[in-house]
Design a protein around this nucleic acid. Structure first.
Length: 428
DNA sequence: TCTGGGGTCCTAGGACCC
DNA sequence: TCTGGGGTCCTAGGACCC
């Protein structure tokens, strides 16, 4: 294990508060301090809650149909998830953050680690507050900032910032009594300790982050692998997880969805799979890669009493490609081979793997290099058009135009920031 | 009626090779 | 009776994250 003592270096973890809810509120200031929730795809479960909703006790992941009464009773505003909007706001937040550190890792849609270097102790908290004010002013998104000598401690500090000092929204664990903080933190709240390990540790009588930190290495290694050991060392202030400021390309790309209504015939299923293949190909091109492995899966609804069927099949391409045409074609062949009549399908998806640098995308025996180059240029234009004028401005005919299988999004907010037709208008 | 969609890393065990 | 040992690759499964 390669770990280094962090000797005075500080890391900040910036986390957007209730990110999806905050995004919706930017354009609906009337919803500030009001209960708001955002739903998962197909309006299935609650995936984001405003503080008001959390306080009322509604759990993350609750199915919408079980919340109807709660929503009515408390006058909750409900939104379908609008990833186009969230992606765009996320981009603005990250651009703002980038000005505060030469090294930054975008960890998720709403989180980033910032390397603060050897910034003086006394200056850190002030700096954190400055980051917070700037992001809020420039993007309208409230954030919390946790500062610590390692990623895991920064994460823990962030949790603390959010819950113990929401007014300031900044907490520097380096300026606090670390032992006391770890003692007050349930071990299950430590980053890297999931429900499984949490339960195991509790059974062993380990309940706080401090108790976990002080366990013998040999026990941790034996029961929780090196991953658990790294977490413990990080809690001791020894840095084992570095800031990855260059995003490594994905090793696999999956595009899948549950359908809004079950699909019973082949044709719409083929359209859906073509759409997923096309979206996966877009993701692939965005990271300048090509794939030589395509997989397709489909499944009926496991929650229903109807006859069940699910299957997965894959195909290895002779040469890597990033062409939507080629990937759609291969995905369609896969689907033909696993499709069975007489089932009500609920979900399908496309997987790409064996991903390589796009430069290895070369012509096969029966196609010319010229053809490949032409197709690459074509898709680079299509990608630019779709980026500028909105997804699916240009798309392959095989993706279908009706899309009856499309997911349910009954409470969708407008695409305020990415569609000319849906930009908010201010009337004098 | 309704039940998300993406990812990562690590380990154990088997096959195979010399 | 004795029944190598070490290396690599692959896969399935389990844990975690947002």
């Amino acid at each position: 294990m390669s770990c280094i003592r962090s000797d005075g270096r500080a890391i900040a973890l910036v986390d957007c508060n209730n990110f999806y809810v905050s995004c919706e509120r930017i354009f609906r200031p009337d919803l500030a301090a009001r209960p708001v929730i955002v739903l998962s795809n197909n309006d299935g479960n609650v995936v984001a809650r405003s503080n008001e909703v959390k306080k009322l006790g509604l759990k993350f992941g609750a199915p919408l149909h079980e919340c109807r009464e709660f929503i009515r009773k408390h006058g909750v505003s409900v939104f379908s998830s609008n990833y186009t909007l969230y992606g765009d706001i996320s981009h603005r937040v990250m651009e703002t953050l980038a000005a505060f550190s030469p090294r930054m890792e975008i960890y998720s849609i709403d989180e980033a680690f910032l390397d603060l270097g050897r910034m003086e102790h006394a200056a850190r908290e002030t700096y954190g507050k400055k980051i917070r004010q700037t992001v809020e002013r420039w993007t309208g998104i409230p954030i919390s900032v946790g500062i610590g000598p390692t990623k895991t401690l920064a994460k823990l500090a962030n949790h603390r910032a959010k819950h113990n000092c929401p007014q300031e929204g900044v907490f520097d664990i380096g300026g606090a009594d670390i032992d006391a903080v770890l003692e007050q933190t349930p071990v299950k709240e430590v980053w890297g300790i999931g429900p499984r390990y949490g339960a195991l540790l509790n059974r062993m009588g380990v309940h706080t982050a401090r108790q976990f930190r002080d366990l013998p290495d040999s026990w941790i290694r034996a029961h929780m692998t090196v991953v658990g050991l790294r977490t413990a060392w990080e809690l001791r202030g020894i840095s084992c997880l570095s800031i990855e400021d260059v995003a490594s390309p994905r090793k696999g790309i999956v595009s899948s969805r549950s359908f809004g209504t079950p699909v019973e015939s082949f044709e719409p299923l083929r359209e859906a799979v073509a759409s997923y293949a096309s979206r996966a190909a877009e993701k692939l091109r965005r990271q300048h890669c090509a794939a030589s492995f395509v997989g397709v899966f489909l499944a009926t609804n496991p929650f229903s009493d109807e006859p069940q069927y699910s299957n997965f099949i894959s195909y290895r391409l002779p040469l890597p490609t990033s062409s939507s045409f080629a990937l759609i074609r291969h995905a369609a062949h896969c689907l033909e081979r696993i499709y069975r009549e007489g089932f009500r399908y609920k979900k399908a998806g496309v997987m790409l793997a064996e991903i390589v640098d796009g430069r290895f995308e070369s012509a096969g025996l029966f196609e010319s290099a010229h053809e490949i180059t032409r197709e690459k240029r074509l898709f680079s234009v299509i990608d630019r058009v779709n980026e500028r004028f909105g997804a699916r401005t240009v798309f392959c005919a095989s993706e279908g135009i009706g899309q009856a299988w499309h997911m349910r999004r009954a409470f969708l907010s407008p695409r305020y920031t990415t569609s000319w037709n849906e930009i908010p208008v201010v009337r004098a």
